[in-house]
Simulated scan of single mutants.
Amino acid sequence: MPILTKNQFENLAKFDNNPCISIFIPTQRIGKDVLEEKDRIQLKSQWKKVNEKLKNFGLPQDKINSIAKPLDDLLNDSDFWRHQSDGLAIFMADGFFEKFTLPVNFEAFTYVSDHFYLKPLIPMFSGNTRFYVLALQLDRVQLYEGNLYSIGEVAVNDLTPSRLEDRVGYDYEEKALQFKSQNPATGDTIMHGQGAAERDRKNEILRFFRAVDEGLREVLHNEKVPLVIACQDSFFPIYQEANTYKNLYDKSVPGNPSDYENMLALHAATLDVLDPHFNKEKENKMNQFRELKPGRTSTAVSEIIPAIFEGKVDTLFLENREDIWGNYNENMASVDIHEEPNSTNMSLMNLAAIKVIEQGGKVYLMENEFMPAQDSKMNAVFRY
């Protein structure tokens, strides 16, 4: 599954047109709902809502139909609907159409404005959630790059040996035969040096893993993200000995990589292993919010958004599945908050989140009970 890149995200954030249409729906990978094409029905339902919004904005029907043409083609693509993940995000404008099938369970949502709604994608690009996972077997080596929501394979065939035989030149059945002989008097089989055979086996695996590690240096030499090993439990200590990458994670994904039915299953298992690592950064930021002196944090939207545009916000906490509607006048540094969305206002949460990401800050979408200050939908930690 290809990763939604930061460059694609930034291009969507910069896109400026009227109208810009954002549609999010949950999708199913397998099962009865796929056979009954419920995902396709869901998208049709969401488009009807968009169509009504566009009519209310005064857009002519022929213009609406022109914008909808790529969506109509997608709705008629049966093969596309048989190969879904957990969520589908679609971004549309006149002459523009992008779709992303992602392992993110979106809630059904539509947004029509002069910009795209990217808040549901924010966690994919906030904080250091990237990692590598090395699926290591004696007959196969695969490297993947992932984050909390996506994973994709990195080609390393020309950098690392793909199997142990390529490195040591023979297999272990042949090696084992070298430790057997017969008693010439009785004809009985005699086993020689079983301990030596095991040591030799470990040394050969170590040589193989060192060759793998050496090949990975070209990919990992400037990286600072975790490298997680997926391998048999007995192999992990050997790879630790061979490893030279400074950010090798101290726990491995259990079991043989071939036991996982596909890349997504391996991704899920890797996230389970990395869960303490990813939560640590968020917990540190939440502790900062609670411990910093007044003036270094805020729960007031009217204070936070101007601070964001001044580059002062280091970390932004937003309540998940909620929004704040209104407008921001950058020249006056003034925030106008409204009760409901309408044709002239915008999502202030979306505006704030995108701006913080652009500035290299961190944004966390959180349920209300986990927000640092639960009485506000928006909490911020300032840089200064």
Rank of each mutant, 00 (worst) to 15 (best):
Phe278Trp: 00
Leu88Asn: 01
Phe317Glu: 03
Ala373Asn: 01
Glu218Asn: 13
Thr299Asn: 05
Ile30Arg: 15
Asn368Gly: 07
Lys312Arg: 07
Ala196Gln: 06
Ser22Ile: 12
Asp188Pro: 05
Ser343Leu: 08
Asn345Val: 00
Glu153His: 06
Tyr260Gly: 04
Pro2Tyr: 00
Ala352Asp: 10
Cys231Tyr: 09
Ser150Asn: 15
Pro103Glu: 04
Asn379Ala: 08
Val156Pro: 00
Gln28Lys: 09
Val219Pro: 02
Ile25Trp: 03
Asn379Ile: 00
Leu136Thr: 07
Arg167Leu: 04
Asn147Arg: 11
Met366Leu: 14
Glu310Lys: 15
Pro341Ala: 12
Val112Leu: 07
Leu220Arg: 08
Asp16Gly: 01
Thr5Pro: 07
Met286Thr: 09
Ser113Asn: 15
Leu227His: 00
Thr344Leu: 06
Glu165Ile: 12
Met371Ser: 00
Ser113His: 14
Glu319Ala: 11
Lys246Met: 07
Asn368Cys: 05
Leu71Met: 09
Pro26Asn: 12
Ile64Leu: 00
Leu59Val: 15
Gln232Phe: 08
Leu35Thr: 14
Phe9Val: 02
Phe109Pro: 01
Leu148Gly: 11
Asn262Gly: 09
Pro276Thr: 10
Gly152Asp: 14
Trp325Asn: 05
Gly311Lys: 05
Ile151Trp: 11
Lys32Ser: 12
Gln240Glu: 14
Ser126Pro: 05
Ser150Trp: 10
Gly169Asp: 13
Phe131Leu: 07
Asn157Gln: 12
Tyr170Arg: 15
Tyr172Met: 05
